[in-house]
Amino acid sequence: MMSAAFLCCASSNAMAALEVFACEPEWASLASEIGGDKVKTFSATHARQDPHFIKARPSLISKVRRADLIVCSGADLEIGWLPLLLERAGADVQRGAVGNVMAYQYVPLLEIPTVIDRSLGDIHPDGNPHIHLDPRNLLLVGKELLNRLVLIDEGNSDFYKLRFAQFETKLNTAIARWLEEGKQLKGMQVMTKHKSLSYLIKFFGLEEVASLEPRPGLPPTSSHLAKILESVGSKNVRAIIRAPYESDRGIDWITSKTKIKNVIIPYTVDGDDNSGDLFALFDRSLAILKSAL
């Protein structure tokens, strides 16, 4: 046991790559964009896992304990497991420390509730935490990640700055293209399963006419679905969009009675076979939405 411990540490020192613990794949991907081979990223969840509901498993404890930098969405998205993991992590990645980035703090948040009460469902008091689906937020969070990487690993600061500048240019160009190519999506009426796609909806200017969850986090009820179906007649709803980890409960019922399509948006990196990085994620989301028009 002791020799194993010694070996692992000796090898990690030799590599000297910063260990980045990301709660979600999008942040691992963003950290790789900026950190390149100077960082070793690990994502606690993958695209088919609901980041609200994973467990503080033993394997995650060992990962977080070795992390130099933690990047999470925050805004209570990881409240069920991150606090337990942080208890086992180092001082430099605790709340408020240089190695702790809670992405929600650096972007304008949507859906900040004015009333906070548990009878209203799964409420996030700080606002909707699924912020990465507006690519402009990736720049804001990326800027902060750059600041932190420079502080933690000063020796490679030029490397990080250069990579961020390249990423920024590439993303700005892509954003302009997405907005241009997504023009026809403006005003497209959609329904959602959960409020996990709000930022994407805002970015492309879609119109969310209803959510199948009667209240955030509560599964659809038949009376709520009936109400939705009733209201559909007067509208021109093209699709029900959802993340890969969200169940299709209730969706089939509505799509079988209407011409509304059942559409899965990749939601995050590797959400489907054609979403291998952040750029592909938005390319793919755009293509899926356009084909649902």
Partner: peptide, 26 residues
């Protein structure tokens, strides 16, 4: 507009999240 929004968020993030909950509702 983005700059202003970011500045606003940055100012907000300096306060603890508990404070935000206490202050945010109208």
């Amino acid at each position: 507009l983005e700059e202003v929004a970011v500045a606003k968020v940055a100012a907000k993030s300096e306060a603890s999240s508990d404070e935000i909950i206490a202050v945010a509702p109208i």
